[in-house]
Amino acid sequence: MSATHLNQRGETFFLNLRFLLIVCVFIGNAIEPLISRMDGIHSLYMWIFTFHMPLFVFVTGYFAKSSLTGEAGRKVLLQIGMQYIIFQTLYSVLDITVFQVKNIQHSFFAPYLLLWFLASHFCWRLVLLSLRKCSPLQQIAISVLLGVLVGYLQLDGTWLSFSRTFVFLPFFIAGYHFSFAALEKFLTRKVRVTGMMLSAGLFLVLYLGGGNLIPGWLYGNMTYMQLDHHEWYAGLIRLSLYLLQLFAGAIFLSFVPAKESRLTDFGRRTLYVFLLHGLIIRVAAASPLYDYIHTGAATLGLIAGAVILTVLLSQPAVRKWTSPAIEPPVQWVVELERRALGQFNH
Results as ranks from 00 to 15, higher is better:
residue 162 F to W: 10
residue 162 F to Y: 10
residue 115 L to E: 03
residue 195 G to T: 02
residue 101 V to S: 13
residue 131 L to D: 00
residue 86 I to V: 10
residue 176 Y to I: 01
residue 101 V to A: 11
residue 179 S to G: 09
residue 179 S to P: 02
residue 83 Q to H: 10
residue 166 F to K: 05
residue 173 I to V: 13
residue 79 Q to D: 06
residue 114 L to N: 15
residue 94 L to D: 10
residue 172 F to M: 06
residue 191 V to D: 02
residue 105 Q to C: 06
residue 196 M to F: 08
residue 185 K to V: 07
residue 77 L to R: 15
residue 169 L to E: 04
residue 116 W to G: 03
residue 172 F to Q: 06
residue 200 A to V: 15
residue 108 F to D: 01
residue 98 V to G: 04
residue 180 F to S: 06
residue 161 S to I: 01
residue 147 G to T: 09
residue 79 Q to G: 10
residue 172 F to I: 06
residue 163 S to G: 02
residue 125 R to A: 03
residue 93 V to T: 11
residue 142 I to V: 14
residue 116 W to N: 05
residue 159 W to P: 01
residue 179 S to K: 12
residue 182 A to N: 04
residue 149 L to I: 15
residue 172 F to G: 01
residue 163 S to Y: 04
residue 120 S to F: 05
residue 95 D to N: 13
residue 140 I to N: 00
residue 75 K to T: 09
residue 116 W to M: 08
residue 141 A to L: 07
residue 148 V to M: 12
residue 183 L to K: 11
residue 82 M to W: 07
residue 125 R to H: 05
residue 87 F to D: 05
residue 109 F to T: 15
residue 170 P to S: 06
residue 193 V to S: 12
residue 175 G to P: 03
residue 161 S to M: 03
residue 142 I to E: 01
residue 180 F to C: 09
residue 197 M to Y: 07
residue 184 E to S: 14
residue 93 V to H: 12
residue 107 S to N: 13
residue 131 L to F: 10
residue 194 T to M: 13
residue 127 V to H: 02
residue 142 I to Y: 01
residue 109 F to P: 01
residue 129 L to E: 02
residue 188 T to Q: 09
residue 105 Q to G: 06
residue 132 R to E: 13
residue 155 L to D: 03
residue 77 L to K: 14
residue 101 V to G: 07
residue 168 F to C: 03
residue 112 Y to G: 01
residue 138 Q to C: 08
residue 94 L to E: 12
residue 156 D to W: 14
residue 165 T to Y: 07
residue 139 Q to D: 01
residue 159 W to E: 08
residue 168 F to S: 04
residue 85 I to A: 11
residue 153 L to G: 10
residue 141 A to S: 05
residue 181 A to T: 07
residue 151 G to R: 05
residue 170 P to K: 05
residue 189 R to P: 12
residue 74 R to L: 14
residue 82 M to P: 00
residue 131 L to E: 00
residue 101 V to Y: 11
residue 182 A to G: 08
residue 120 S to P: 09
residue 147 G to H: 01
residue 138 Q to G: 06
residue 199 S to A: 09
residue 134 C to A: 05
residue 121 H to L: 11
residue 137 L to M: 05
residue 95 D to H: 12
residue 176 Y to K: 02
